[in-house]
Simulated scan of single mutants.
Amino acid sequence: MATDPKSKGKKLNNKQEKENKPADTGKKAGSQADKKDKTARRRILPIWLRIILVVLFSAAALIIGLMVGYGVLGDGDPTDALKLDTWKHILDIVTKTE
């Protein structure tokens, strides 16, 4: 019998019973799925190479951001953003004590 309130008193046919029946999870199906999960996966890029690439891309993004911010937005020479004298001048302005 169906537990749906709309179909109270109605008997389900075989097709409807199969649709409402939960999937059978026997040992064979579970063990095959476990074997697939345990097989070693070959990675295209090793973990250590991924870490190095993330660090390199982050550094490149920082340098590009500095140059765009200083050169384009700040109306200066973009290569000046990479010079040490520029950063000393900026720190002097920020930590100015009178």
Rank of each mutant, 00 (worst) to 15 (best):
P22S: 07
A23W: 05
A23N: 06
A23F: 09
A23Y: 15
A23K: 12
D24S: 04
D24P: 00
D24F: 09
T25G: 03
T25C: 11
T25L: 14
G26S: 15
G26E: 06
G26F: 04
G26C: 12
K27S: 15
K28F: 15
K28H: 12
A29Y: 05
A29C: 11
A29M: 05
A29Q: 04
A29G: 06
G30H: 09
G30P: 13
G30I: 14
G30E: 12
G30F: 11
S31G: 05
S31H: 05
Q32S: 08
Q32G: 13
A33V: 07
D34Q: 12
D34K: 15
K35C: 02
K35W: 00
K35A: 01
K35G: 02
K35P: 01
K36N: 01
K36D: 04
K36Q: 04
D37S: 12
D37W: 06
D37Y: 11
K38A: 05
K38I: 06
A40G: 02
A40N: 06
A40Y: 06
R41I: 13
R41H: 10
R41E: 13
R41G: 05
R41C: 06
R42G: 11
R42H: 09
R43C: 08
R43V: 08
R43Y: 03
R43K: 10
I44R: 03
I44K: 11
I44N: 06
L45C: 07
L45D: 11
P46Q: 09
P46W: 10
P46E: 06
I47T: 09
I47C: 10
I47A: 10
I47S: 02
W48Y: 12
W48K: 14
W48G: 14
W48S: 12
L49H: 03
L49V: 12
R50E: 04
R50W: 01
R50V: 01
R50P: 01
R50D: 10
I51T: 10
I51R: 02
I51F: 14
I51G: 07
I51Y: 14
I52S: 01
I52M: 06
L53W: 10
L53H: 08
L53T: 03
L53N: 07
L53F: 15
V54I: 03
V54W: 01
V54P: 07
V54S: 00
V54T: 01
V55L: 03
L56F: 02
L56V: 09
L56N: 08
L56W: 07
L56R: 00
L56E: 12
F57M: 00
F57S: 00
F57D: 03
S58I: 01
S58E: 00
S58K: 02
A59S: 03
A59E: 05
A59L: 04
A59W: 09
A60W: 04
A60P: 13
A61F: 14
A61P: 03
A61K: 05
L62C: 07
L62H: 04
L62M: 13
I63R: 09
I63P: 05
I63W: 07
I63V: 15
I63C: 15
I64F: 06
I64C: 02
I64P: 06
G65R: 07
G65C: 15
L66M: 09
L66F: 08
L66Q: 14
L66N: 08
L66D: 13
M67D: 12
M67T: 05
M67C: 10
V68H: 09
V68I: 08
V68T: 12
G69A: 11
Y70A: 04
Y70H: 00
Y70F: 10
Y70W: 12
